[in-house]
């Protein structure tokens, strides 16, 4: 199924990303923040995509750990890479805005700290997979599950510690002139996430097949 709709979806996503700047330019001009506010149309969707990736990775890791299904592990590693990727987009666009709005690149503030931590967790996940040696998949799966369970704790603790970020209630209160462009961008990012995930899982499957072929070849030679 996915293979059939992959190309049309890829074209659609490309077109959406090509058209997104037009939508964003035409969206209502935010009077207090001015032009810098426009970054929000990429910043928030990137975080949406990251949180989806984190959730997919955690859930897939749990399935892998308890059921031992290799497919689940492939999804988990692909999602973890995407979580890092979208996290980097968020971490780059955030300070660009913060420099203009707050006058500093970085603030030790609740949501920033939390984003930074989540990014660290998943970079850690990838490091474990790369350098953990044999059996690293299981280690990484535990890391992902613990990382996911950690999200509410980090959220609560960091929230009490510091709060400065524009509240998350900003999304429902968006003016009608901005809502269209915002959800358009969210959809584009979600599609991009789904496409990249499919591609990456496919690559992982092919790697597994290749490994099996090598093993079979070695067995045959001996």
């Amino acid at each position: 199924m996915m293979r059939k709709i992959f190309t049309p979806l890829a074209i659609l996503t490309a077109l959406m990303f090509a058209y997104a700047p037009v939508m964003i330019a035409n969206a209502l001009f935010e009077s207090t923040m001015g032009l810098v506010q426009k970054i929000f149309y990429f910043h928030v969707p990137a975080w949406f995509a990251m949180f989806t990736a984190v959730f997919v990775c955690g859930a897939a890791s749990a399935v892998y750990l308890f059921k031992g299904r290799p497919e689940a592990d492939r999804i988990a590693v692909s999602a973890a890479e995407l979580a890092v990727l979208f996290g980097v987009i968020g971490l780059v666009t955030g300070p660009l805005w913060g420099r203009k709005a707050w006058g500093v690149w970085w603030q030790w503030e609740a949501r920033l700290t939390m984003a930074f931590l989540l990014e660290l967790t998943f970079v850690g996940y990838l490091l474990v997979r790369k350098y953990g040696g044999p059996g690293a998949e299981k280690l990484a799966a535990a890391m992902a599950i613990f990382g996911m369970a950690n999200v509410p704790f980090v959220y609560v603790s960091v929230n009490i510690w510091r709060t400065l970020h524009p509240q998350t209630t900003v999304v429902p209160t968006l003016g009608p002139g901005m809502r269209g462009a915002f959800w358009f961008c969210v959809l584009a990012f979600m599609l991009l996430f789904a496409l990249l995930l499919t591609l990456r899982v496919h690559l992982q499957e092919q790697r597994a097949t290749l490994d099996e072929l090598y093993l079979a070849e070695e067995d045959g030679a001996v």
């Binding site: 931590l117 660290l120 967790t121 850690g124 490091l127 474990v128 350098y131 953990g132 280690l139 890391m143 613990f146 990382g147 950690n150 704790f153 980090v154 609560v156 603790s157």
Partner: peptide, 13 residues
């Protein structure tokens, strides 16, 4: 090397 890498992000709370 891996123990602190895994442990510190999770135990931040």
């Amino acid at each position: 090397v891996l123990l602190p890498i895994l442990l510190y992000p999770i135990t931040v709370p």
